[in-house]
Design a protein around this nucleic acid. Structure first.
Lengths: 127, 127
DNA sequence: TCTTGACTTAGAGTTAACTCCAGAGTTTAT
DNA sequence: ATAAACTCTGGAGTTAACTCTAAGTCAAGA
């Protein structure tokens, strides 16, 4: 699969795909004899994982570390377990913050909906 | 309340507090006669709101727009309602992405825990 | 009053994560 | 076989959101 096809399949720019590989966020991609990227199933798996992690907001740095550990063999399994557990923790924290903010937004939206419907502001404290 | 006290109360650096005010993410803070910031209750409310929105990952730009609208009076209430509704939507989307990634992490973590306990890798596909 | 520490602004610097560009090599269609 | 389209690398540029610095002003204690 060419970089163009992968780019379209995952909606990630070609530049970003090259960037991910360059910084080590995914392992080196399979190449043709002339040096052109030819993504195999395993490469696609890494791209998909990278996209998933990034879309949740996990730092590129964490994926780089994870990829590095996987390249070093089975002895790094405990380290990988710890890394993933830490990332899970940050996602749970982030989710909690989002929930707090969502409640805040819901409250405000409710107030504004009443204001729009009735033409009257029903509160006077902080906006 | 001085900027130092506000900084400690909300765990936001003084530089960031000045930055938020400078770009309009919070309205101008009350000042003493000599021009030193003296945060009132209403100012603290804005700081707290700003911190809440930012911690959830909402862009500074959105808060700037919201603050601008509130300064323009009641005629902007429908616009504010729309802005908040859009921000809520992006938070819900972000939360969904986090949930997807959490499932992925939970799966991997489960596998690695087994591998650590038994000393045997029980899978062979993408890492 | 002096000095020490907190505060001010304007503007430059930093970091993460891309994004773009130039110049060169490769593949495809006519 | 030659143009058009695609890909390559190295490196520079961009954006968001801070973060720091310099040079000056202000305030509280000895």
């Amino acid at each position: 699969m060419t970089i163009k096809e992968v780019s379209e399949k995952f909606d990630i720019s070609q530049d970003t795909l090259r960037y991910y590989e360059r910084v080590g966020m995914i392992p080196p991609v399979t190449r043709t004899a002339s040096g052109i990227r030819d993504y195999q199933e395993k490469d696609l798996g890494w791209v998909e994982l990278a996209k998933c992690m990034r879309s949740a907001g996990l730092p590129v740095e964490a994926m780089i570390e994870y990829v590095k550990l996987t390249q070093e063999g089975d002895s790094t399994i405990p380290a990988r377990l710890q890394l993933l557990t830490e990332q899970r923790e940050t996602l749970l924290e982030q989710k909690a913050k989002i929930d707090t903010t969502l409640e805040r937004l819901n409250y405000k939206i409710g107030r504004y909906e009443i204001a729009v419907k009735t033409g009257v502001l029903t509160w006077n404290d902080e906006e």
